[in-house]
């Protein structure tokens, strides 16, 4: 589903992501953890096609992000850690805009919006301008817009920040449903307990380099993910 090969990104002299390679298969929830500034967001932005990278390749469903960026982007959804959405639109107009861009048919779109907005309890607020939304509401709207077009791959940067416990729980179930349906999710988080319970696989990044990756069992062994992470950080 997602193959990252030798991804390298530099900011001037600083190497933000250094020769990172990962493979995410359909059906997998892949957690991406690391300290602040480790290179998680840069990697996710690189995979989403937002950030140009200096070396390496990204393949989504076998398509190269370099040669077919539109094909890749039409198969994925990306939600940043602080989703700045179009404040000048109402929630429903924003969802329609995303639906139009991803060419979701009107009937299907209507049904998906109805279903997802109800699940995230945002139906009543869809007519409001996004500028009037709270951070959590914006996060929910961004999540609805991500699921609306049934992407193959979902990239989430700190998706649980700002969500209330109910929405957080809902998101976790939706992530699992998405992967059970053959999709894949690659997400970054600082909440190690969540990562431990939710992820099939996990990758730990430190100073731009991948220091460990694999199935949850293989990465943490008999320890907790937190213990493994802290141990790797201290090395």
């Amino acid at each position: 589903m997602l193959r990252i090969e030798h991804l390298t990104k530099k900011y001037g002299e600083k190497v933000a992501v250094d020769d990172l390679s990962l493979h995410i298969a359909p059906g997998e929830i892949y957690g991406f953890i690391g300290h602040n500034g480790a290179g998680k967001t840069t990697t996710l932005k690189g995979v989403a096609g937002i950030q140009q990278f200096d070396a390496g390749e990204v393949y989504i469903d076998g398509l190269s992000l370099k040669t077919d960026p539109i094909g890749c982007k039409s198969r994925l959804a990306y939600i940043p850690d602080n989703p700045d959405l179009y404040d000048f639109m109402s929630g429903i107009k924003y969802l329609n805009f995303i639906g139009d861009v991803f060419r979701v048919e009107a009937d299907r779109r209507q049904a998906r919006i109805r279903e997802l907005a109800a699940r995230f309890e945002l139906t009543d607020d869809l007519g409001q301008p996004i500028s009037a939304y709270s951070h959590g509401m914006k996060q929910k709207l961004a999540l609805i817009s991500a699921f609306i077009h049934d992407p193959r791959l979902i990239l989430l940067d700190e998706p649980f920040v700002g969500l209330d416990p109910k929405a957080s729980h809902l998101l976790k179930s939706m992530m699992r449903e998405h992967c059970d349906g053959g999709g894949a999710i690659f997400f970054s988080t600082h909440v190690l307990e969540v990562a431990e319970k939710l992820c099939d696989k996990v990758a730990i990044i430190k100073e731009g380099r991948l220091v460990r990756s694999g199935t949850m069992e293989a990465v943490k062994g008999d320890d907790s993910l937190e213990e493994v992470f802290l141990e790797l950080e201290e090395k």
């Binding site: 009543d124 869809l126 007519g127 409001q128 009037a132």
Partner: peptide, 15 residues
């Protein structure tokens, strides 16, 4: 910043 809350009523969507 405050906007009077209007409850959303579903309308037919056109693509």
């Amino acid at each position: 910043a405050s906007v009077a809350r209007v409850r959303y009523r579903e309308k037919t969507i056109r693509s």
